[in-house]
């Protein structure tokens, strides 16, 4: 059976009229790096919450269908059992930072403390995680004295340090500078190489195309497309449904109309675009 198994999942928040997820079916294998795209309101964050157990355990509401991770059903678990396997980095780091800690180092150790990890292990795991995300220099700063992008790195690190089997990230780079964004994608890609499974909501098509193994496009709480990045991200279906595409794809689509793009398939990465337009620098 798949590592993550979502079957006929329909979910409605307590105070909304229509369900945010509608009869969703999704299977995810171990080690996949999945990128979830979609318009605002398509159900991306709700899917993250469902994977992380917040839906329904924290938010309540009406749920039908089932979510299983590593053979365990969400409906048969409590939230504190669930978080051992699944980690979620929130869309807004301000909402995630505990407020109970004076330094970044302590903030990142917070989850490990609660899980009862011995002190020596905690120390080295926090240091390793900070090194991985490039924030060792922020260790002694207050989490609230940081810039938006730095806070976002702290929020991400405080989840990575827990070493979850399934890592769920809701727009983890939204406030990061461009090269920082690329670095985070690369770090996460490496984690999937060592067996972690990642589901990441993102708008940054260029880096999704570069690093993700699979793209899931959501619309109105259901799966609109599901496939390889190079297929999904160049599809006309995305354009028709108002999704953003990379500049490489849109410029090649226009060039194709003018006979300046000769290939059948449209590019989605810099490399594919340069190759297709006949670069001699590759």
């Amino acid at each position: 059976m798949a590592f993550v198994n979502i079957q006929n999942l329909t979910y409605k928040y307590p105070l909304t009229k229509t369900p945010s997820l509608q009869n969703m079916n999704l299977q995810i294998e171990k080690g996949e790096f999945i990128s979830v795209i979609g318009a605002n309101g398509a159900g991306k964050s709700t899917l993250c919450y469902a994977l992380a157990g917040f839906v329904p355990h924290f938010f309540k509401g009406e749920i039908s269908g089932e979510i299983e991770v590593d053979g365990v059903a969400s409906s048969k678990s409590t939230l504190d059992e669930w978080v051992v396997n699944v980690g979620l980095a929130f869309q807004n780091p301000f909402n995630q930072i505990s407020g109970a800690k004076y330094t970044v180092f302590e903030e990142i150790a917070f989850g490990l403390e609660n899980a009862g990890v011995p002190r020596e292990q905690m120390q080295s795991r926090v240091e390793e995680a900070m090194q991985l995300t490039g924030i060792s220099n922020l260790a002694d700063r207050s989490p609230y004295s940081l810039s938006g992008g730095q806070q976002q790195r702290v929020a991400l690190t405080s989840i990575l340090v827990m070493q979850p089997k399934l890592l769920v990230l809701d727009e983890p780079t939204s406030q990061m500078d461009p090269i920082g964004t690329r670095e985070v994608f690369s770090v996460i890609h490496n984690l999937t190489q060592s067996g972690m499974t990642v589901v990441m909501v993102e708008h940054k098509v260029e880096w999704i195309a570069h690093f993700a193994t699979r793209v899931i496009a959501l619309k109105d709480g259901a799966v609109l497309m599901d496939g390889k990045p190079s297929d999904v991200l160049t599809s006309d279906v995305l354009i028709e449904n108002g999704f953003g595409v990379s500049r490489y794809t849109s410029v090649a689509r226009e060039a194709k109309k003018q006979g300046l793009w000769k290939k059948e398939k449209l590019p989605v990465t810099l490399f594919e675009a340069a190759e297709g337009f006949g670069s001699n620098k590759l």
């Binding site: 500078d177 461009p178 990379s246 500049r247 810099l270 340069a274 337009f277």
Partner: peptide
């Protein structure tokens, strides 16, 4: 720009590769 962690726009980078 790389000194301050900024990449040029996508089409700028593509233009460079196309000389």
């Amino acid at each position: 720009l790389a000194q301050t962690y900024v990449d040029p726009p996508q089409l700028t980078r593509l233009g460079k590769l196309l000389n």
